[in-house]
Write a protein that binds this DNA or RNA. Structure first.
Lengths: 353, 353
DNA sequence: AGGATCTGATTAATCGTTTAATCATGCATA
DNA sequence: TATGCATGATTAAACGATTAATCAGATCCT
């Protein structure tokens, strides 16, 4: 900055004004300053600017357990959206206990981030913080800024399976404390016809008893006539798929499987997994937009620090792949009309292997 | 800072000295300053300090395609190691083309990071940069600071399978341009006995012809007598596992499968995948340690900006799970002695399904 | 007692911007 | 001609820490 000023024989303030477009500088001088800056490869000191303006140009990203396989999608989308707006992204890991989430937030604030994007841990509520916050969780979460419409995603899954003639559902979740999973499971349930059967498996409960990685007993479910296995995550869908395959049950011929989130492996396994994808880019754009609006607004005592967006739920999209197929019934024509098919709760016939 | 100084009737400089332990301050005053700082909830301005000292206290993390499933492990470990050393971590996404990697690095430097940890993209070489850099790739990469010993990991895989009696190997990689994958595959090959058979599948080549997600033809391999499928990543191991399962081949009874990296799903699929794990924590600690050493060393014209560590390869560890099992042969006792078993290259007998 | 030394604290400059206040100049208007 | 106003640039004070240089006293030594 001062090097440009010296080289041009003007004051540093003028250079600052020229570069920022503020103040009054003649168009001709502005051009000369620009040229000189370019020539000297000048890059402004973000620290000096931050000190003077009180804006660091950095936002924090707090994620529940970074090793969540969904993390990459979110992180990448947030990073891109932030970069487009000229912000950097500082990551903080809130894995471990819930106290660590508070600690992570604390550290970010000490680093003087301008705002924080947070995907909260199970069962934590984000209270007013010392800086603007955008929360990405679930529409049913209080203070949620924006998120995928998990409930609608669940409906998509159920509708898809119902359309294929399924009536007997096993829904697989990990932890009922998660708003996201609850919404997904709830959405599914809401679209399962009255004449259908529903069974819900919460994996973490099972594992408390049977140990991590325990079988979910899906073979028995199939033998009991269940044909549709819908999980709240591709991780669990994959678990279901392999458990079924291993038990000699053919997917999708004898059972259909659906997951959520379109995680990396879902498209490369065999058969590839039908899933529901969230538009991470749109969510990130909205979250960052709302966060920046909150940051740029003059801080007033009565205004909340929690960013709110016009649109707070982004629709999810079904990605049909190979793990779902039309249910083969004794009377194939019946499956077209869901309200009449299988009025009894007896299991439909399955194809023999 | 000045609020403490005013409250105590001393100068700001004294407060600074008291808090940092530099200069000469009486022990008694130091204690009073500490107490007052605590009482007022004082947090130092990192920007002001950064401006004065020229150190931002932030390092950048550049990852090839954030959505790489290995990313979470690395990111989390780096973040922890950095946080322990009092540094923040700024993420940058270098997905897309290679030019974006350069751009990402550029942006980090503009943000005045003190150093950069970079996991390079395929086929890029990290040259001298304007700030200290630690490179995490593979021991066979020039300028590599530290990484897992992928070659040794490959040996672990091969030894494990050979111990189980296998002689006919299909090695599965994605892209031969990757040093990491090349090392892993190379290490495997180096431990396959002379009387063994080896076939290598490079997935990306196959997909160029057959399209993404195409079958790898593993059933035919099994019919040809191959019994061991070792992939350079759990992602590909999973692909192999499901393809085999789908073809009605039982794992591990008829074929063994091994992967790399112990990705999240590997332990929950059925059967759970035998894999080789890298010690991301140790690698991150070493990388951060070497990076900070380079940062703290006075910059001299002749010294390189690329961090070097005492130990630059961290051993990998085999995680035996359910996808690998002893090969059932006609003469079971022979499989104990690898140098004698199957001296001909004819395929061993397999169990009928 | 007088000079050297040590201790504990203060002063003031500095990092590189931003920005309100000020100033100099030219030009139009009364 | 004096006044007012617009324009284009400069001055100088911040922002909040760090740190070299300085200073005032107390202590010590001969």
């Amino acid at each position: 900055m001062s090097v440009i000023a010296d080289a041009l024989g003007v004051s540093a303030a003028t250079v600052s004004n020229a570069l920022s477009g503020k103040g009054r500088v003649s168009p001709e001088l502005i051009e000369r300053v620009r040229a000189k800056a370019e020539e000297l490869g000048y890059v402004p000191s973000v620290t000096a600017r931050a000190l003077r303006t009180g804006r660091s140009g950095v936002i924090g990203l707090v994620l529940p357990n970074i090793s969540n396989p969904l993390f990459p999608q979110i992180a990448q989308a947030i990073e891109n959206a932030a970069a487009d707006a000229g912000y950097g992204v500082l990551i903080a890991d809130s894995s471990g206990d819930n106290a660590k989430q508070t600690l992570a937030i604390q550290r970010l604030i000490e680093r003087q981030v301008d705002g924080i994007v947070i995907v909260p841990r199970l069962g934590t509520r984000i209270a007013e913080l010392a800086c603007p916050v955008a929360v990405i969780d679930s529409p049913s979460t209080p203070n949620n800024t924006v998120s995928a419409d998990h409930w609608q995603g669940g409906q998509l899954v159920a509708e898809h399976l119902v359309d294929l003639g399924h009536r007997d559902f096993v829904l697989i979740g990990a932890n009922p404390l998660s708003n996201v999973q609850n919404d997904r499971i709830g959405g599914m349930k809401s679209r399962i016809p009255k004449d259908g059967r529903v069974d819900v498996i919460w994996i973490e409960r099972n594992e408390m008893v049977l140990g991590a990685g325990c079988p979910l007993g899906l073979k028995e479910k199939v033998e009991n006539g269940f044909t549709a296995f819908a999980a709240s995550s591709d991780l669990h869908a994959l678990r279901a798929l392999t458990e079924l395959q291993r038990a000699g049950i053919r997917v999708p011929n004898e059972a259909s499987v659906v997951g959520f989130d379109d995680l990396v492996w879902s498209s490369v396994v065999s058969p590839s997994i039908t899933t529901v994808r969230q538009d991470a880019v749109a969510i990130a754009d909205i979250a960052i937009g709302a966060l920046l609006a909150t940051i740029e607004r003059e801080p007033s005592p009565e205004a909340s620090n929690i960013a709110v967006a016009q649109c707070n739920r982004v629709p999810m999209a079904l990605v049909p792949r190979q793990t779902t197929a039309r249910l083969a019934t004794a009377d194939a024509s019946a499956s077209d009309n869901s309200s009449f098919a299988n009025s009894s709760s007896s299991p439909p016939e399955r194809n023999a292997p």
